[in-house]
Amino acid sequence: MFGRRPVLLFDADDTLWECNVVFERAADDFCAWQARPGLDAAAVRRVLAGIERANTERHGAGAAVFLRSLADCLEHLQQRSATGAEHAHLRRLAEAVLDCRIEMIPEVAETLGALQEKYPLVLVTKGDAVDQWRKIDNSGLRGHFEAVHVVREKTTATYSWLAERYQLDVESTWMVGNSPASDILPALAAGMGAVYVPNDNTWALEHADLDSAADRLVTLERFGQLLDHF
């Protein structure tokens, strides 16, 4: 479809807009609510992290799974079922997550606008499809992309499938994202280049070690620096 033209693939959450920090705020509020003598907020957070990891592996990521994890954690800590009032309070704590509110990362809109004039842009994001499409719509960025894909996970096979689907020349295709685990390492393994734009709020499950000397890996400090490279 795109032939041998350079193509830029983009992650969404924590690359184009803040995502994990919204979850973190809700989690902090939950932990403060459940903390008590002998069980401080940090201890509650460790319990919640284990439950989140298990639920994510079993059910995937997304707002509904996060809300489920909060409820599961409450019931684990209280050793009983959550009451109707507690479920309602959990929904209030997670309101920003459930509403898919967007906090745009600086320089994103103008940078995409400039890149769009020179290259085909493709959005590749993972998570719950309903949540992701709501965020895409809420962001106002849909028009910058020639194609959008929402997938459950981003693996080397995902990027290889995209290369085959759009007949991409992997040597002139670049993946831009904040997640070493989902954006950078699998794209490199598929033969593409990768642009790592770190985000201090990246979800712990997306962390992985990167080799700074890896061939075709570029690390930037800001999203707007893409214009210095493309």
Rank of each mutant, 00 (worst) to 15 (best):
K118N: 03
L16W: 14
L227R: 15
N178R: 02
L67V: 12
L121H: 02
L205Q: 12
G38D: 13
D131K: 08
D14P: 04
D200F: 04
L77V: 13
A88G: 12
R58G: 05
E95K: 05
W203I: 05
A214M: 09
T219G: 10
Y159H: 03
L74T: 02
Y159L: 06
L98Q: 07
W133I: 13
T155Q: 01
P120R: 01
R101W: 02
L210P: 12
G62Q: 10
E221S: 15
T156W: 01
L48I: 07
V176W: 02
A54R: 13
T83I: 13
L141S: 13
P6N: 07
E24G: 03
Q79A: 14
S69G: 02
P180S: 08
E24V: 04
D11C: 12
A54Y: 08
E221P: 08
A41C: 12
L226I: 15
Q79M: 07
L185T: 13
N178V: 02
F30K: 09
V124K: 11
A109M: 07
G143Y: 02
R216N: 15
S160T: 09
P6T: 03
T202P: 03
R222T: 15
N138I: 02
A189R: 13
A71D: 01
G60E: 01
S160E: 12
L185N: 11
A187V: 09
A204E: 14
A109H: 08
S139L: 10
G177S: 02
Q78G: 02
E107N: 15
A32N: 03
N138R: 10
A147N: 11
G143R: 00
D99N: 07
Q116T: 07
A147S: 10
R91N: 07
M192Y: 05
I184P: 09
N138T: 03
I51F: 03
R53M: 01
E75F: 05
L112F: 09
A94L: 00
R91L: 12
Y119G: 03
A163G: 07
E24C: 03
D228I: 11
N55F: 01
L227P: 11
G127R: 05
T83F: 05
D99L: 07
Y166N: 04
D131M: 11
A63R: 07
Y119V: 10
F10R: 14
R134E: 09
G3K: 08
D169T: 02
H207A: 15
L123F: 14
S139V: 05
G140S: 13
A64G: 00
Q78M: 04
L93N: 03
A181G: 08
K154R: 01
